[in-house]
Simulated assay, not measured.
Amino acid sequence: MNPLKPLRIFNKAKGQPQVQDQHWYSVKAVGDAGQRSIEIYVYGEIGTWGITANQFVQDLRAMDDGVSPVIAAFNSIGGDLFDGLAIHNALSRLGERCTARIDALAASAASVAACGAHKVVIAANAMLMIHNPWTFAGGDAEDLRRVADVLDQTLEAIIAAYKSKAPNIDEAELRRLVNAETWLTANEAVALGLADEVGEGVTVKACLGQGAALQRFQHAPKTLLAQLAEPPEPEPPEPIDPPPVVDASKLALMITQSCTQAGISNLIEPLITSTKLVDEATVQAALTRAKAVNDLCVAARFPEFTLEFVSAGLDAEAVRGRLFDKLVGSGKGFEIDNSLPLQNDPPPKVQAKQPDPPSIWAARKGAQTGQTSSSKGA
């Protein structure tokens, strides 16, 4: 088989890197025409599952005017070595106007990419990690021997990338550090020549999203693993709109007019007190409830309790229960229904006068006596 075609050279780790969804990559121009610069953020894995060299080079080419300074900021555990080498070469072609900035971590292929810049500034609390290439393959003995040859060749490419940044570094020491998977602090990276300057320390742990992938390395610092294991900071709460300005006098007038129209002017004061004139919705609900309570009390012939029930904040169901108890106790036996009472009760119907036997007898007796007297006079 042709080992170069199917092979991807990864970190020296325990398994194939998994695709990470969380990454931050952007290329943008900042500043005015006279002070224009290009900023590139590589915050995430490098390769087909994250930030590819093809995407990086194409975006940079579209933005670059050939004179503006270019700043490439890294916070990455690395990834595909060949993509890292391609980014390394793209930065190297920019010459002295290119600066790589290691904001938190440049590991594996990311360290290879960053070393392509003319100047490397590493934050005081950042790290740079170098190590052997790693891959996975299948096949017969001859196939695996070819894969081993490819790994040896890619190791030489890694050594060459680092030496292009630090030409005075002892090659034997460099190979020892690469083989041992070495995590370099900012000062150590500068001492070796892989970085030029220690910058101001910053707190950058977002946008990696790679805590699980970082554990694949053999000697990842425990402090770094613990930092990535911390839960992400919560999103800031949505801004709360300030409450609308309430016109209390308008709401009080609403209660007064509604109660007057409904004939329940005695409820104006308790409604103003109970609603506290909070807002129009609260006032409307209280008016609706007060009218229902008044109608129930009138229907039960207990209008005198309306003020008490409204002041207590009782709803219609509670009022029905109270009225039922009062009706049963009074013996009136009126039925409570939900129908609205008439505005004016109709006049009582005229009933026929019941017969009164004694009066009828007296009247007949008087009539007979009158007839007898008339006959004698004649």
Rank of each mutant, 00 (worst) to 15 (best):
R97T: 05
L105M: 13
C115M: 12
L94N: 03
V112S: 06
A117E: 05
T99A: 09
T99I: 08
A104H: 14
V112R: 03
R101W: 14
A117D: 06
A113L: 00
A100D: 05
D103C: 11
V112W: 01
H118I: 05
I102Q: 01
L105W: 11
A100M: 08
A109I: 08
S108K: 03
S92D: 15
C98T: 11
A109D: 07
S108W: 07
E96H: 15
C98A: 15
A90N: 13
C98H: 05
S108F: 10
K119R: 15
H118D: 05
R93H: 14
D103Q: 14
H118M: 09
S108T: 05
L91V: 12
A100L: 09
A113C: 06
S92M: 12
S111A: 15
A90K: 13
A104L: 08
A110K: 07
A114L: 02
R101Q: 13
A114C: 07
L91C: 12
T99C: 08
H118C: 01
T99G: 05
A90D: 11
A110D: 01
A100Y: 07
A104T: 13
L94E: 08
A109W: 11
S111G: 02
C115Y: 08
A107N: 07
G116R: 01
G95A: 12
H118T: 05
A109F: 09
A106F: 03
R93E: 14
A104K: 05
A117Y: 05
S111H: 07
S111R: 04
A100I: 02
R93S: 15
A104M: 10
G116W: 00
A117S: 07
A114Q: 02
E96A: 14
L91F: 11
D103S: 14
S92C: 10
G95K: 14
A113Y: 00
A90W: 14
A107Y: 02
T99K: 13
C115P: 06
